[in-house]
Nucleic acid binder design. Structure first.
Lengths: 226, 226
DNA sequence: ACAACAATGCTGTCAACGTCTACTTGCTGC
DNA sequence: GCAGCAAGTAGACGTTGACAGCATTGTTGT
């Protein structure tokens, strides 16, 4: 492995040797931490190794993160921001059909979960320092995308009326659960798309307004669990 | 706190002082570990402290658990066994009505998740040593209860036909997701029952056989998200 | 220009941990 | 009674998170 290339900013003083001040240690630490997190998990994430990888002394990170938990909190916050952005992109990028939009959003969530399982776990760890007002806020912003999806569905008549938060939670839980099943190894990655499809389909059927039941009733029976 | 009372078996040699051999170290370690896990989380679980609490030297646990991960694996396995038992009790103990049975089973799962959040996380960590054939087996046995629930529903005509594993996964995911939302602090404990109710209700509606739709359509609109 | 000051990074230290190795104790079958 | 084995003890090593004190740098007021 390429021993984590120098992460110092290009504009920094680079004459003789490495400058006393890194220039953007906080950013560099977060970036490296996210990489290590993805590749080796939370357990393997060490402040000292991080410092080594970035090229500063073992005490330096302390200026930017009071303790290990603070680093993890920051990672979680960044994760929520990215998750929210990806969900929004998926929702906005999908076509007109409501089911397609729901499916796209759910798939984006599960994709995030599979690619950054450890990060997602961190985000939902609940063990964040009490001062994590900021974290709660970005988390809420990510959830807002799902809320918007629900409201769209209600406006278009695909979902029955009712408190969007309430029905949104059910959808949220289902998607999050699928993610957990995948990262936990209960279902294989190849089965994910089918599972998401099933779940969305059934969710829509379960939230149909009283009258309409014209569309899809073709949830085929085919084994795809291990 | 009462400094973790002596966990040595009653029959053991208890003359002068503590005997050289504990007698049932493995069991004692697991019991103490489960307690610590529940009260302080995985991160705080230390082999050395465990040994101290049980009254043996810091090297002793090694005879029973090759390393820390082996201990965690054993905890996860015990957890699956208990979870399976509780799910079965809930399913068998509920009445005749299918929805009531489903609700009871789901509630039991979520109760387990809230009371032993760290343990559940461990069970689904997926980072278990490759040799965890036994663990996969007990996990499957726990899942089998949900499968049986599904099959009952299909026999009784409450659920449409189809591969039970496939529809079971959706239910499993939903429940697991609710658990994750609770332990992650996204929903409060007071809202759990309502959320489980909603989820089950919608799941049933989403899996109804084509004809029947007589029962509950009364998913009231009431805010219960934060 | 320069002194004061706040940021930021470095070094050294400490207790705790997981793991390893070598030794000791107690039991059991011969 | 003793060989052999399982279970526990004791000490060591390397790593980690946390902390304190000092060094260096950039900025700001005069």
């Amino acid at each position: 492995m390429a021993e984590t290339a120098d992460t110092r900013p290009p504009g920094a003083v680079t004459r003789g040797e490495r400058p006393y001040h890194h220039g953007s240690l906080r950013t560099a630490l977060l970036a490296q931490a996210e990489r290590t997190l993805r590749e080796r998990g939370v357990q393997e994430l060490s402040l000292r190794e991080l410092a080594r990888a970035v090229g500063v002394s073992h005490g330096a990170p302390r200026r930017h993160f009071a303790d290990r938990q603070a680093l993890l909190d920051a990672l979680a916050q960044a994760g929520f921001e990215r998750l929210g952005a990806e969900l929004r992109a998926a929702l906005d990028g999908a076509g007109e059909d409501f089911q397609a939009r729901a499916q796209a959003t759910a798939s984006a969530y599960v994709r995030f979960a599979t690619q950054d399982a450890a990060l997602l776990e961190l985000m939902f760890a609940g063990k964040h320092g009490e001062h994590s007002q900021a974290l709660a806020e970005v988390a809420h912003r990510a959830f807002a995308v799902l809320l918007e999806l629900i409201e769209q569905g209600q406006r278009e008549g695909a979902l029955e009326a009712g408190d969007p938060e309430r029905v949104g939670l059910v959808l949220f839980a289902t998607i999050q659960g699928i993610a957990a099943l995948v990262t936990g190894g209960i279902v294989e990655v190849e089965q994910v798309d089918a599972l998401v499809g099933d779940a969305i389909e059934r969710f829509l059927r379960g939230c149909e307004p009283a009258g309409a039941s014209a569309r899809g009733r073709q949830v085929a029976a085919g084994g795809h669990a291990r």
